[in-house]
Amino acid sequence: MRNDEALTVDEVAEILQVSRNTVYALKSRGELASFKVGRKLRFSYTDVQAYIAKSKTSREPEVVPVKQGGRFVICGQDVILDVLSNYVTQAGVECLRSYIGSYDALTALYKDDVQVASAHLWDSATGEYNVPFVQKLLPSTPAVVVNLTYRTQGLYVAKGNPLDLHAWEDLGEQGVRLINREKGAGSRVLLDESLRAHGINPYKIEGYGDEVQSHIAVASMVARGRADVAVGSEKIARQVKGIDFVPLKKERYDLVFKQSAFETPGIKAMLGILESGLLREEFASLGGYDTSDMGRIMWMG
């Protein structure tokens, strides 16, 4: 994707993993630059990436922990979190969104910059999702891990899979060009842990150091022939023309919050929504989501 490429509202929504209304709101608040082509609203790829980078590093000083009377912030990039946050707001709790990856989300939770972090971080040493990272990144902090959904992670490849890429080991083949996610993203951690488990030196893979910051962006790079392969989720592969998807791993996508927040209005509203079945029914029919364990407590410690 070229830095000067004009993007539609729908394309920006896919890159940010937010709703169309959220894109318009960002534009109205002056947080995301835009321009007109005729009567059509457009955004530059460079401006979108700049917004993503800013959202990863900025900390709004007015956002304080719920226990101190501040607003309720859910952190993560999947569109399911936008819908969940809307339900929480409808339940009477002002809910904000922060669009940073899993590793940074847990760090933000530890610092009380957000109240809920989403995570899909696989630990190759234990074979577990999320809990080992929660224990490391929230030291001496009692936390709760609640399942949101399961998704399938795998390889984005060109239509027809011309390089015959079917396993992690194939990424180490000479001439295979990778486009990578940013450090701390769940897909990046899965790639790094899988390469380590198979004894593959990542720095010998062409393109390993080339990073973009969303599933839709890496899928688009493969579709445009600017990379041969990328790691991402199945549901995005269904939305991007010109690529095939090679499933490799079913991942667990969880919500994490501190035990001390269990009785706060935001957490109570969120858990009530997960238990109600509204979100489960809405996303079970979309494809790419397994909501069978939604709302189940996976770990407390």
Rank of each mutant, 00 (worst) to 15 (best):
S55L: 06
G38R: 03
V63G: 00
S102H: 10
T46P: 05
T57H: 12
I52S: 13
P65M: 01
S98D: 06
E94W: 07
G101L: 04
E60H: 12
I74W: 04
R39G: 11
D82W: 02
G69I: 07
L96Y: 05
Q77K: 11
T46H: 13
E94D: 07
T46I: 11
R42W: 05
G38P: 04
V73R: 00
A119M: 03
S102D: 15
D82E: 06
R71Q: 06
S98A: 12
K56F: 14
S85G: 10
V64W: 01
K54M: 13
S44C: 04
S58Y: 14
I80G: 02
Y87T: 04
A50I: 04
V114D: 01
A119R: 02
G101A: 09
L106F: 15
L96D: 04
V63L: 04
V73W: 00
I80M: 11
Y99N: 15
S98Q: 14
A108I: 00
E60R: 13
Y99S: 14
L109P: 15
R71E: 11
A91V: 10
D82Q: 00
I100Q: 14
A50E: 15
V37M: 09
Q115Y: 00
K40E: 13
L84F: 02
V48R: 03
D47A: 15
V37D: 06
